[in-house]
Measured scan of single mutants.
Amino acid sequence: KKVIATKVLGTVKWFNVRNGYGFINRNDTKEDVFVHQTAIKKNNPRKYLRSVGDGETVEFDVVEGEKGAEAANVTGPGGVPVQGSKYAADR
């Protein structure tokens, strides 16, 4: 997939743990970017499923997906693991 931007910061608008996807609002352009659970590179080690939490600040790359921009290599700011959704089960 073609990389559009790297190391972008954004805020998770919403993320559905059961369906495994959601949207991140970019801090720079204010665009909403699709995020799939497979794009989460550093999950919270205490969580079973990969997820990001609503309102969480994340860092990610933006790539060209089939339906427009989507997030890739999602981590917390500075490459730390994401916090994850409060609806995702703990280990």
Rank of each mutant, 00 (worst) to 15 (best):
V17W: 05
A89N: 15
F15M: 02
G53A: 11
P81T: 11
I24V: 11
Q37W: 11
T11V: 10
N43Y: 12
F23V: 03
V12L: 03
F60W: 00
R50H: 08
D61Y: 03
K1S: 05
D32E: 08
N25K: 14
W14S: 04
G79T: 05
V58A: 02
L9H: 12
F23L: 03
V3A: 06
V80E: 14
V80D: 14
V74E: 01
G79L: 05
D54I: 11
K41A: 10
A5N: 15
V12H: 00
S85H: 10
K41L: 14
D28E: 04
P45N: 15
G53K: 12
A71G: 04
T57A: 12
W14D: 03
D32R: 02
K86Q: 13
V17K: 07
G22F: 01
V33L: 13
K47G: 08
N25Q: 13
V62L: 10
E31N: 14
T38M: 09
K7A: 08
V82K: 04
G65Q: 06
K41W: 10
V35C: 13
V80R: 10
V74R: 00
K41V: 14
T38W: 05
V35F: 10
G76R: 07
T38C: 09
I4P: 04
D28H: 02
D54R: 11
K47R: 09
W14G: 02
R18I: 15
F15D: 02
G76A: 08
G10E: 00
T75C: 15
A88I: 07
F23D: 01
G76K: 07
T29R: 04
D54Q: 15
F15R: 00
N25E: 14
F34M: 03
E64I: 10
G55A: 09
G79I: 04
N44A: 08
D32L: 03
I4W: 06
E59S: 08
G53N: 14
S51F: 06
N44G: 12
R18G: 07
E56W: 03
G55I: 03
F34R: 02
S85Y: 06
K1D: 07
N16G: 03
K42D: 05
D32F: 02
L9C: 15
V3I: 15
P77V: 15
A88R: 09
E66P: 15
N19M: 15
V3P: 06
V80G: 13
V3K: 13
T38V: 08
F34E: 02
H36K: 04
V82W: 04
K2C: 05
V3M: 09
G65T: 13
F15K: 01
P45L: 13
G79P: 04
F15T: 01
E66G: 11
P77H: 06
K47N: 14
S85R: 08
R91V: 09
V17Q: 06
E59F: 07
K7F: 04
G78K: 12
T57Y: 14
E56Q: 06
Q83P: 04
F23H: 02
T11L: 06
S51K: 05
N16E: 02
G79E: 08
K1A: 05
N25T: 11
Y21T: 03
I24W: 00
V17Y: 06
Q83F: 10
N19Y: 14
G65I: 04
P81A: 11
F15P: 01
F15E: 02
V52I: 15
V63E: 05
G20L: 02
E70N: 09
A69S: 13
K7T: 09
A39P: 00
Y21F: 13
F34H: 02
A5S: 15
E59L: 12
V82D: 04
G68E: 03
R50E: 04
V33Q: 01
V8F: 01
N25H: 10
G20Q: 11
Y48N: 13
N43C: 12
G84M: 05
F34P: 02
T29P: 01
V62H: 04
E66K: 15
F15W: 04
R46T: 13
K13W: 02
G10Y: 00
K42R: 11
A88H: 06
L49N: 06
T6A: 07
A69P: 14
G65H: 10
Q83Y: 09
K41C: 15
K30S: 13
D28K: 02
N44Y: 06
N27K: 14
F60C: 04
E31K: 11
A71I: 01
N16F: 01
A72H: 15
G84Q: 04
A72Y: 15
R50I: 11
N44M: 07
G55E: 09
E64Y: 12
G79Q: 08
N43V: 09
V63W: 08
K1P: 03
D61L: 02
D61H: 04
T6G: 14
A39N: 08
V62W: 00
D32Q: 05
R46V: 13
A71S: 07
V12I: 07
N19I: 12
N43P: 11
T29L: 05
G84F: 06
W14M: 03
V17C: 13
V80N: 15
G55F: 07
Y48Q: 09
V12S: 01
N44V: 05
V58D: 00
Y48G: 11
E70S: 14
T75E: 07
S51Q: 05
N25F: 10
V63S: 03
D54H: 12
V8C: 12
P81K: 06
A71N: 00
A39Q: 11
N25V: 14
K47T: 08
N19T: 12
V80Y: 12
F60P: 01
G53H: 09
E56D: 06
G79H: 08
N27G: 11
N19W: 09
Y48E: 13
R18A: 13
G76Y: 08
